[in-house]
């Protein structure tokens, strides 16, 4: 890594803007993290409104397959460098939805997760700890999930398509039915 890259990474670690994709119950832990009790702005982390502006994608809970579609679309709209934070046990192994047919179990199979925060729910301390960890990883140049995604795009795409197929209607579409009748 050249010195310029080191400099760039240092500043990137100090200014991480996040897009919180609030699914499930994890979103409730974010307001205390942002506001005066824990104040994550002191680390240069602020919430942004759209994927174009953000560096971190924060997935705060379980993802149904239909939601996963949106998450993938949002992730692909973000510009490199970008990182994904899986938040809570739902993103790790499905959590309490471990045997659900409509919910994905491992987020890492569909988009590259740089860091998980375990717990149900993780407390704000844990979230801040994760941000600190991610900051160190970024500054060392270790958080390269976005490059992994490009390199293994076929694998990710196949995984995504396999579950997306489940969202297609089981019955034939209404017009097809009328046509055949």
């Amino acid at each position: 890594m050249s010195e310029w890259d080191e400099l760039v990474n240092y500043f990137r670690g100090r200014s991480m803007w996040m897009l919180h994709y609030c699914t499930g119950c994890g979103a409730i832990e974010l307001p205390p993290t942002m506001t005066s009790r824990w104040d994550m702005e002191r680390f240069g982390i602020i919430p942004m409104a759209t994927p174009r502006q953000a560096d971190i994608l924060l997935i705060t809970g379980y993802l149904s397959i239909k939601t996963l579609k949106r998450v993938v679309y949002t992730y692909e709209q973000m510009s490199a460098p970008k990182w994904v934070l899986g938040f809570g046990s739902c993103t790790i192994n499905g959590g309490i939805y471990w045997d659900s047919y409509g919910v994905i179990q491992n987020l890492d199979k569909y988009i590259p997760v740089d860091l998980y925060i375990a717990g149900c729910m993780p407390r704000p301390e844990a979230i801040l700890d994760a941000f600190g960890k991610l900051k160190k990883m970024v500054q060392k140049g270790e958080a390269k999930g976005y490059e992994k995604y490009i390199k293994n795009y076929d694998w990710y795409k196949a995984n995504q398509d396999r579950v997306f197929r489940r969202t297609e209607p089981v019955l034939r579409k209404a017009e097809e039915v009328t046509k055949s009748a």
Partner: peptide, 12 residues
Amino acid sequence: TDNYTAGQIPED
């Protein structure tokens, strides 16, 4: 058409 649509996919 590759635009911010609050996560919604335009074709769908």
